[in-house]
Amino acid sequence: MLYFSQYAKARLEYRLDFFSSVFASFLGTAAAFGFLLIVFSRVPAVHGWTFEEMVFLYGFSLIPLGIFNVLSWNLYLFSDRYLIEGRFDRVLVRPVNSIFQVLFEAFRLESLQESVTGIAAVVWASRKMGLSFSAPDVVLFVLWTFCGAAIYLAIFIGLTATSFWIEDRIGIVPPVFNLMQFGRYPLTIYDGWIRFTLSFVIPFAFASFYPVVHFLKRGEFAREFWAVPLIAAACLAIAWTIWDRGVRRYHSTGS
């Protein structure tokens, strides 16, 4: 870990740059909340969800998403940067797991503002709704947040690993990215098949919706709530396997 902080330090020399990118990133997040505000200025509830509940859901999902966004930058660039340029050679001759190296070699620290904003939104919404959390609830909350980040990361790692097989850049990342956004709204507003996909095919709903329903004490989906760590572990295991297989297929570049 020290290794990564070293790298971060080397990278963070331009403070001003950093603060302006945090600000830019924050504007994007604020705009999303603004959108919620506009929608709920016209209707009191959407599919049985009040404004505060929506803020809680959206805010909660921002916490794992922030962690994910900090680490995921290189995943988007993986094919170009590492496979086509052959930079993956260097990664493979270092005695650290290759996926860790890829994740930690570039990060967008500014995305951490999303997690902070998310926590603020959750706290605000809880106060407003008069929700109180016991100590075990808080522990669960933290653990489930990390599970959520793990689910996001695992899904995108698995997806990125397909570039070991598929050389041309094809458009599977954008649709999955959209699906991830869907997972941040109440699942009950969707058709059956989107619901099914978000729960069982690409289980984004376990990273935000199912945990939130429990924390809001709405009394639905208890089973799904407790399944979150299992889903996270399964996603990681699958992603790990795909990645490992991919690494074995890596064929470098002819020089």
């Binding site: 050679d89 493979l92 001759v93 074995r248 890596y250 064929h251 470098s252 002819g254 020089s255």
Partner: peptide
């Protein structure tokens, strides 16, 4: 030559 080295260093399977 390079291909051999890459297999000997674990880059290529």
């Amino acid at each position: 030559k390079s291909t051999t080295i890459k297999m000997l260093t674990g880059i290529l399977t």
